[in-house]
Design a binder for these strands. Sequence first.
DNA 1: TGATAATTTGGGATTACACCAAATTATTCT
DNA 2: AGAATAATTTGGTGTAATCCCAAATTATCA
Lengths: 162, 162
Amino acid sequence: MANNKYQFFIFLYMNGQNYPEFTGLELSPRKVDYLKFIFEKRGTVKTTEISSCLQVDPSTTSKTLNELANAGYLNHVPYRGVDLTELGKAYAEFLVRRHRILSLLFTHYGLSTEEACTEVSRFEAFVSRDAVNKICSSMGHPLIGVCGEISHEKCFHEEHYH
Amino acid sequence: MANNKYQFFIFLYMNGQNYPEFTGLELSPRKVDYLKFIFEKRGTVKTTEISSCLQVDPSTTSKTLNELANAGYLNHVPYRGVDLTELGKAYAEFLVRRHRILSLLFTHYGLSTEEACTEVSRFEAFVSRDAVNKICSSMGHPLIGVCGEISHEKCFHEEHYH
DNA sequence: TGATAATTTGGGATTACACCAAATTATTCT
DNA sequence: AGAATAATTTGGTGTAATCCCAAATTATCA
């Protein structure tokens, strides 16, 4: 999706904080995996760790990490590791929330936790932030997701836009 | 997904009919669009018609049609047009059902018909047939979808497998 | 039949993703 | 410290899914 060396986000200042504006469709499926993984690890993450978890060659990881850094989601110190930028954190928070909301949704329709999780992992990258926000609202901003707690901290609801 | 020149399906004989076994993940997003379009047009469809609807160059359509024919979904008479094979019909029926079930689902969570349709179009290719069947069962096999009637004719439910 | 329209072919590009081999840098151990 | 080892990055490649353009082919219509 974003091969561009740089990606620009417009930030919206609100309640004393800056929120990036995004559609939720900025990252390719695999990049979503990387960012979610790094987010959940917290702190600095090494290439090897990511490689073995995502089951790809370290060289693949290295290149992807570099792309995510160029797009502004990560700080990358070569040979040392990566960690999330502020944008990366905000974005990853959305990614995790999206994954959990969608997984929770699917468990309400006869899928087991694992099935829902697997299924959602396959397509989540293509579900917009607007849709996620609407679903989230409609479900009453649930706190318990099937793959962990759902954070609504930086969750924008439509009300805020207008 | 399927670059293989040929795709093989195992057919399950049941109730005097043959049902192909498939995961629902056989076709790439764009191929799903092509098949759904051809299905909904019914009969023989010409390259130009598809091109203008899917907004792509006729040469792109021509090539994709050829791939779908090689994979067994279409009969393609060069310079004349395409129509669905039996496999193509059965598969397209699933594709349309999947689209409608998922769209209907999303309209229950605060998305308008158009929003749901757009959203689902983006990711439907990655939702498995098993998941669709479970969701469908769980919703009580609804007949009215947001983008038309939902057919359950060749809809396999888990009960049938065991 | 000859012009025009539709279709296909051949060539080429891009993006996303992956691997291998070789080079580079960090770490560890003696 | 200095060498061996491990981790990481780079460079080179490959595939699948899309797309477009230009040229060739086939159909259609007047």
